[in-house]
C-alpha cells in the first residue's frame, strides 16, 4: 500500500476521539476496520491528511442481548457472527454477517464503520432497516439517536453530521411469532451484494401482522420496500402470497447497472431475493 502521506492518531477514549475529530475537521477520517477506507487510500481515491484510528476505544465494542440488542459500533463482524444469543435475537443479522467478505474481512471489519461508510452494496444497511434499528451517535452537540429509516440519505451518504461518531446500534430482539432472514446475490469478485434482501415478519394467528423488507445493492442506497410490506400484511404468508408481494420489490427504486448486472436484471433479482428472504423469515416466525 502506497498511500499519500497522512498523520495518524490512536485515541483510547471516545471523548479523545471526538476532540481530535473536532480539531481536524474535514481533513480527518475515522479509521474503524479499514476495509473500505484503506483500499480507497491505496488507490488514492481518498487521501485524508489525518487518520483517527478508534480501534483502541474499548467502550465502543461489545454486544448485549436482553430483550433489546445493543451492538457497539466497533464490534467486528466476527464477534457478531459468533454470538449465539444474537443469532437467536435476529437471524437476519446472522445470515448477513456470515456472507460478508471472507474470514479476514470479518475479523477486521466493524458494524459502525460499515454503516458510516454506507456503501450501496453493503449487507448490513438492509438488515438494520428491516429490524428498524436505532443508530446512536455522539458529537459536538452531545448524543442523539437516528432511526435506520432516516440514516441512509444517498450513495455513500448518511445523516451523520460533521464531528459525529457512531457509538452503537440498538433494536428489539425477536419475540414469539417473529422471524427474519437475509438473502444475498453476491458479486463474484468483491462479494458485496449485487442484490441483498432483508425481511422481518411477525405472524399472529396464522396471519402476517407486521412486515419490514429492505433491499441493498440494487440501488444507490438501501431502501425499505413499503409496497411489498403492505401487500404481505394481512395475508397468510403462503408461498403464493409471498410471491405476489415480492413482485412489488424494487418499485420506485433507481436501479444501478454495471458490467456484472444490468439494471433490468437487478430489478428482476430484487423480486427473487425478496421472495427468498420472506419465505425464510416466515418459516422462522412460524
Amino acid at each position: 500500500m502506497i498511500p499519500a502521506p497522512f498523520d495518524y492518531y490512536a485515541p483510547t477514549s471516545l471523548a479523545e476521539a471526538l476532540t481530535l475529530l473536532q480539531r481536524h475537521g474535514d481533513d480527518a477520517k475515522i479509521l474503524a476496520g479499514g476495509h473500505s477506507l484503506l483500499p480507497a487510500m491505496k488507490l488514492r481515491l481518498a487521501s485524508p491528511s489525518v487518520l483517527i484510528d478508534i480501534n483502541k476505544v474499548a467502550e465502543l465494542r461489545g454486544i448485549k442481548v436482553n430483550g433489546t440488542v445493543e451492538i457497539g459500533a466497533m464490534t467486528t463482524w466476527s464477534a457478531i457472527e459468533h454470538h449465539a444469543d444474537l443469532a437467536k435475537a435476529c437471524p437476519a443479522m446472522a445470515d448477513a454477517v456470515a456472507l460478508i467478505g471472507d474470514i479476514q474481512v470479518r475479523n477486521r471489519g466493524t458494524i459502525g464503520g460499515s454503516l458510516a461508510h454506507a456503501d450501496p452494496a453493503a449487507d448490513m444497511p438492509a438488515v438494520i432497516l428491516a429490524v428498524d434499528a436505532q443508530i446512536h451517535v455522539e458529537g459536538p452537540n452531545g448524543p442523539r439517536a437516528i432511526a435506520a429509516a432516516d440514516f441512509f440519505t444517498d450513495m455513500l451518504s448518511t445523516a451523520l453530521e460533521p464531528g459525529e461518531i457512531i457509538t452503537s446500534i440498538t433494536f428489539d430482539s425477536h419475540g414469539a411469532g417473529e422471524g427474519s432472514a437475509y438473502a444475498k446475490f453476491p458479486h463474484p469478485a468483491s462479494r458485496y451484494a449485487i442484490v441483498g434482501a432483508a425481511a422481518y415478519v411477525k405472524m399472529e394467528n396464522g396471519q402476517v401482522t407486521a412486515c419490514r423488507v429492505a433491499i441493498t445493492g440494487a440501488g444507490p442506497k438501501a431502501e425499505r420496500q413499503s409496497a411489498v410490506e403492505q401487500a404481505l400484511i394481512g395475508t397468510d404468508g403462503s408461498a403464493d402470497a409471498v410471491a405476489a408481494a415480492a413482485a412489488h420489490a424494487g418499485e420506485g427504486m433507481d436501479m444501478l447497472g454495471d458490467i456484472h448486472a444490468s439494471d433490468e436484471y437487478r430489478r428482476a433479482m430484487c423480486k427473487v431475493y425478496t421472495k427468498r428472504a420472506l419465505l425464510k423469515a416466515i418459516e422462522r416466525a412460524r
Partner: peptide, 28 residues
C-alpha cells in the same frame, strides 16, 4: 463462469481491480 477483462469503448479497463475481476476463491 467468472473471469473476463472488460474495456469500455474509450479503452478504460472496467475490471481493473480484484474487486471487479472475479478470480475464484477456493470456495468457488
Amino acid at each position: 463462469l467468472y473471469e473476463g477483462a472488460v474495456y469500455n469503448e474509450d479503452g478504460q479497463l472496467l475490471t481493473g481491480t480484484l474487486m471487479d475481476y472475479a478470480v475464484p476463491t477456493a470456495a468457488m
